[in-house]
């Protein structure tokens, strides 16, 4: 088998009887056949097919962007684009007033003051429960409630793991590339989280956003959508090049197929040059 093989449903992966069928495959006579469209992977004698379009799997340490869907006993449920909602425990968030203070009953009663249904949050995967649900934490000032911007959704398999998932584009717009395919694009905060009042960390108020910043946010969002439409793996480099390549067009032109094609092709070519 070659290093990376793409297969489509009903395509024979291998006819060698010494292989065992794994996820994404089924047996048909002597053949192991793919049940999904994806990449063939092999561990010893076990053959699996990893689907291209799938829900987010996740690993410990991943930066994810999620939306609170439910407030429950001492925990929030978070939609992280996975098979089941992630869990953010009350004990895994920084509460106002002291970094290491104990969570009291009064905190439990006012959980909606911190996060309520619909709120966007950036967090890190801390652990997995027995049933496969992801446990998140926001015990760092990098993480927490998201404001001043908008959400872009791309297939999770397109977001590449990299050293940092927090980036700044054009000096004014921050992009958080959640590995679960949720990407938050917002105005760069004027105040670093370290300088914020404890209460400000959980505030539900946007800063003032100038028209130019709004345009830039929209342009970055459209670039992300364009890359995702062409199924191009997304990291900071390719996004930055796509943004630059798009600058001689109007933002809304980036919704047109021809422009998407031109901008993404240029971005990929320039990113390839840098990676060499």
């Amino acid at each position: 088998m070659s290093e990376q093989t793409f297969v489509t449903p009903a395509e024979v992966v291998t006819s060698d009887p010494s292989f065992m069928r794994g996820h994404g495959t089924y047996q048909e006579g002597k053949d192991i056949v793919s049940a999904v469209a994806g990449v063939v992977e092999q561990v010893n004698k076990l053959v699996t097919v990893r689907p291209l379009r799938t829900r987010y799997g996740g690993e410990i340490g991943d930066v994810v962007v999620g939306r609170i869907t439910e407030v429950a006993q001492k925990r929030w449920k978070v939609d992280v684009n996975a098979r089941q909602d992630g869990v953010l425990l009350l004990s895994s968030v920084n509460l106002p007033g002291g970094v290491q203070r104990r969570k009291s009953e009064s905190d439990e009663l006012q959980m909606r003051k911190f996060f309520t249904e619909g709120d966007m949050v950036v967090a890190e995967a801390q652990a997995f429960f027995q049933d496969g649900a992801m446990s998140l934490h926001t015990r760092s000032l990098k993480y927490g409630k998201l404001r001043n911007g908008t959400l872009v959704v791309v297939p999770p398999s397109l977001v590449l793991r990299s050293r940092s998932h927090f980036h700044t584009i054009a000096n004014s717009v921050e992009v958080i590339l959640g590995l679960n395919g949720y990407i938050w694009v917002c105005k760069r905060a004027t105040k670093a989280p370290e300088e914020m009042d404890p209460d400000e960390l959980y505030a539900n108020v946007n800063e003032d956003i100038s028209n130019q910043e709004r345009e830039t946010i929209a342009r970055v969002c459209n670039c992300l959508q364009a890359l995702s439409k062409r199924l191009i793996p997304i990291d900071y480099t390719v996004l930055a090049f796509a943004y630059e390549a798009s600058l001689d067009r109007e933002t809304k032109e980036l919704l047109e197929p021809e422009v998407i094609e031109a901008v993404t092709t240029e971005a990929v070519a320039r990113a390839a040059m840098v990676n060499e």
Partner: peptide, 23 residues
């Protein structure tokens, strides 16, 4: 679901005539 700050972002975007996708 939509958060309070997303709603505010959309409303103010409509006010100034720049929507989240640049239209």
């Amino acid at each position: 679901l939509v958060s309070q700050v997303e709603r505010d972002f959309v409303e103010r975007g409509v006010d100034v005539g720049i929507r989240a996708d640049g239209r």
